[in-house]
Design a protein around this nucleic acid. Structure first.
Lengths: 229, 229
DNA sequence: CTATGCTAATTTGGATCCAATGTTCCCTCG
DNA sequence: CGAGGGAACATTGGATCCAAATTAGCATAG
């Protein structure tokens, strides 16, 4: 489920316990099991994970550095609530970073990768539920970056996706799936440019895709549950 | 010295011991005291810091997530060595991210900030040693982003500066200070655009400044001490 | 009945201890 | 004399224990 996340987060397989706990918590946050503002008790996680609190604490530091949790002295960890402005800027960051990652990726994509991307897009076009759509869409985009050899860049992209995951879900729920065809059209244009190995065109389509999403998001302030702090 | 680094790294003052240790280690790495490939022993740090190994371990996880250290199971932490390609891509990332941070910053800069920047640039133009130049240049650029309200963005920028600090120093040492006047001219053009609150022009100058630096860097492979892994 | 202050319980922060793994040095054997 | 193996050492990983701070609950006063 979160395979891509860790792969990009840890250069190679670093299966230390703290990382396994971090992966576990990351998955819990991404799946919505732990929502913004919600507190994370170390003991709970330790117990559920069958380990002591120590690796949990290390994991929380990792997630904090990734921006997935906030810490306050003696008050513990919680998932931060983003404001509309935060989210908007994150999308602006994505709009500049992801095209770069794409350009780095395209020359290294194999025919197999491209076929896999096509297959993913077909599954996205099949009318699925919101949660499945979110998972597939994430998988699709992150897969377009599999050719990007620079860990630091892939990592940044994955983290940006991670920290907005909850709001993407909330947005899908309030906006309905009415505009799914737009997404599909944009994905198809992107895929086409990628198959032609036309980085410039692909960058253009991707940037437009992200920009449009940001614009639509900004029209749905209710995603932030009232509190825009 | 590393004030900006922490300020951006921790949204607010999080003076937990693990963060103080992380700041300490970050400063040691940025100052060149701990160089790429060098190992960091937990006990040493703990002793030097007057604390137990536990906060040190948490600090190392933080630095790992920031990309300042690498970890291997049962082998400990070391500062990663970057390849020419890594460095080049980081500069490409900076070329896209920092103009965005600048645009976010410019409207919020006070007259006082601008005066301070001018003063900094004057100090840069005074012929200083390499280490002082590096510190001032860093301070100058990061100060241009003080108006950027989005923590996540400022944080990313600071981390990019951090992970390339050592190679910037090495580059200055091999390339000599012959081309300092180019930097000064670019800084002046950037400052002028900022004073006119012309984000577009400022972005253009900044991107050019970073691109030129990347190009010059790529002409000095000896910065990587032979090993380009 | 509400608000405030105090105490008890919960939770996080830090230190020490033990286990597991990696490293080094030396001895032996080819 | 060099290479391989093994034992002692050093270092990291994890668990438990204690201290400090926050939170929650209760009692009491207004």
């Amino acid at each position: 489920m979160t395979t891509e996340a860790e792969q990009a987060a840890n250069g190679s397989r670093n299966h230390a316990a703290s990382h396994r706990v971090a992966d576990y918590l990351r998955a819990a946050i991404l799946s919505g099991e732990i929502g913004p503002g919600e507190r994370i008790r170390q003991e709970d996680v330790a117990e559920r994970f069958g380990a002591s609190r120590l690796p949990v604490r290390e994991a929380l530091r990792i997630l904090e550095a990734e921006g997935l949790t906030e810490h306050e002295q003696h008050k513990g960890a919680r998932v931060p609530s983003l404001s509309m402005r935060d989210l908007s800027v994150i999308y602006q960051i994505r709009e500049r970073l992801e095209p770069l990652a794409l350009t780095e990726s395209i020359p290294n994509l194999t025919q197999h990768d491209l076929r896999e991307l096509d297959r993913l897009q077909q599954r996205i076009e099949a009318d699925t539920g919101i949660d499945e759509f979110l998972a597939l869409d994430r998988e699709f985009h992150l897969m377009t970056y599999t050719g990007c050899q620079v860990d630091q860049l892939s990592m940044m992209v994955v983290r940006l996706w991670n920290s907005t995951q909850h709001y993407r879900r909330a947005f899908m729920k309030v906006s309905g799936s009415g505009r799914r065809w737009v997404i599909n059209a944009e994905h198809r244009l992107l895929l086409d440019a990628m198959e032609r190995r036309d980085s410039v065109d692909a960058e253009r389509h991707l940037a437009g895709h992200i920009r449009r999403t940001r614009t639509e998001l900004s029209r749905h302030p209710e995603v932030f549950g009232g509190a825009t702090s």
